[in-house]
Amino acid sequence: MSTMQANVVTPDGTVFDGEVNMISVRTIEGELGILPRHLPLVTPLDIGPVRLKQDGKVQLIALSGGFMEVRGDEVNVLAESAELPSDIDITRARAAKERAERRLQEAKKENIDFRRAELALKRALNRLDVAQG
């Protein structure tokens, strides 16, 4: 099975670096899967999990937005933050989820705080999803 080099890079350092068979991400328009020898591509990413398939195993990474660059046999995911399941602090993510939910109840729609709470909730849910496989 052919492979490609995948890198997941954040401002705080590289999170993942290795050969994968397939990578699937959530773009702002929907799910997108990339196989080796894909055309060069640039796309922004939404908050969501990244799935890296390696010899039948799937490595999950929780991503908080960013973008992906595909070229030749190299895929670069650049994110503001990205965490492996083992690095996720579940209690913190839970607390963030509850806090965001509470804020959503309080805030009125079309409010800037509403948007922020929504994003925070999305990030927290994404982390919890990834952490629990």
Partner: peptide
């Protein structure tokens, strides 16, 4: 390389440029 832009170049710039400016500050 000439990239494929998904959805299009403007949307990507829209997203990317603020990121880039922020990363410059950092």
């Amino acid at each position: 390389l000439s990239y494929l832009y998904e959805p299009d170049a403007e949307t990507i710039l829209e997203k990317l440029l603020p990121h880039y400016a922020e990363s410059l500050i950092y």
